[in-house]
Design a protein around this nucleic acid. Sequence first.
DNA 1: CGAATAATTGAGCCTGCTCAATAATAGTGG
DNA 2: CCACTATTATTGAGCAGGCTCAATTATTCG
Lengths: 270, 270
Amino acid sequence: MQRAALLAQSSALISRFRSLAPVTEADIAFLMGSLGPVERYPSGTELLREGEIIPGPRYILAGWALRTRYLSDGRRQIFGFVLPGEPIGLCEREQPLALTNLVTCTPVALSDASGVRAVCLGLGHDHPQIARAHKRAMALDEAYLLHQIIRIGRQTAYERLVHLLLELNSRCHAAGLSDGSSFELPLTQEILADCLGLSIVHVNRTLQTLRREQLIDQRPPILTIRSKEKLIAIAEYSDPQVAVLRWENHRSHLSARSLCLSSVDSKDCE
Amino acid sequence: MQRAALLAQSSALISRFRSLAPVTEADIAFLMGSLGPVERYPSGTELLREGEIIPGPRYILAGWALRTRYLSDGRRQIFGFVLPGEPIGLCEREQPLALTNLVTCTPVALSDASGVRAVCLGLGHDHPQIARAHKRAMALDEAYLLHQIIRIGRQTAYERLVHLLLELNSRCHAAGLSDGSSFELPLTQEILADCLGLSIVHVNRTLQTLRREQLIDQRPPILTIRSKEKLIAIAEYSDPQVAVLRWENHRSHLSARSLCLSSVDSKDCE
DNA sequence: CGAATAATTGAGCCTGCTCAATAATAGTGG
DNA sequence: CCACTATTATTGAGCAGGCTCAATTATTCG
């Protein structure tokens, strides 16, 4: 069955939705029934080009992509990452223009999300938990941009790297791709450098320091966080997943449960 | 009449709406009829505190506010600015948590926007141009965060300052607060430093350089852009107002007109 | 007209950069 | 399965943009 095949490839998407809101089995069934067929692209594919109209909403089912912009002399800034389970171009505007380029940095599996757009945006009143999850996802997107600004604006190279690794671990965890401290990190040091506003050389040396201090462990492509508490203290990391979900805790115990599942230890919140 | 008084104080808001979409007189009348009374706060007022529920949607009618976060040792990052005509807490989520602090850096005039929320979000089908303007405003918000990342991630101090000044000029222009090259800049060098990830001292020296080179002119609190072309080239500045508005040009000539009114020279777009 | 805030200047230092070379990995075709 | 090539990671050395510390000079405002 094609349906079963899609389901098998959508585990990150489903995991992420579950981490965002207490979606029902019916919600999941609706999602699976509405997604388009899986499209595959190799690493290095341009999914969006800045200033052009976004073809249609899609979900990344597997693989990572980079939001980038270049200066004329070749300097590159990576604004952030799109991870499995996260949407591309799923927004209110009708013919949205891409604000950045989007390039895959691993092989990627995509699925058309036109069929779920209206539900995600809450245009009808079906599947309210999906709409809720989507609103939270949008808030998380902004929170990650803010993270990025804090890192490159006011943190040292050492703090930046730690902060980013914690964020990526948390996001992988929401997608079911981290056990809480160990996940696949498909980024070269050059990508990390262009994300964090550093040189490749300095990223290299800073990672070495973190390994030497036993704070992280790297056996490519797996990155392991050895002492999450210390790292959180170093980077003053506060997890947006926790922050964005918190406000409805008093209303929904299911939500509270998914919070615990998807997030780092509860004491990490503060 | 209180109504007339409100109108007089809402010129920035109206100007900004006109720059975002071809709003009608009826749209403006609706806005003026739905806004709450003007509230005034002095400089230094905390309008939002990170992590707390946003009281209700509001518009800034006059004055500037800063989105901030602090690290525990006192380092401050300013994520961005909220200028006259821009909304606070006007989003999809029901009980949104503030993602950052928001502090006024001048005396500010606010007005409750609860009465326009549904229309802005396009929940009904009234005043579609207002809804359109609001969606564009949301896209601009993201574009300004991306600007911020480019500046502090990959630009030199000199480029950063130029880039920011161009952005602020453009945004002031949309609010009717710049004639295209001259506007009131109510920011101290400390604020600029905390926004751009620099030290106060270095901001000071960089501003001096720009003045010495006749690229800008400062007679506090007025900042004048002397050679916009050169500055745009230096910072590789591309204006989001132009970019975000462009996609509907082929559909609406009114939109195209407002684009020209609100934006810098058309050649600045590329 | 003071007190407080903001801007300016000088001097020395340090984080992180550049340049350049080498080692390790990974992907590929034979 | 292996040599071949292209990436990617690592290391060394010297440099510099921007920082810190500290003092001085405007401004602003009550």
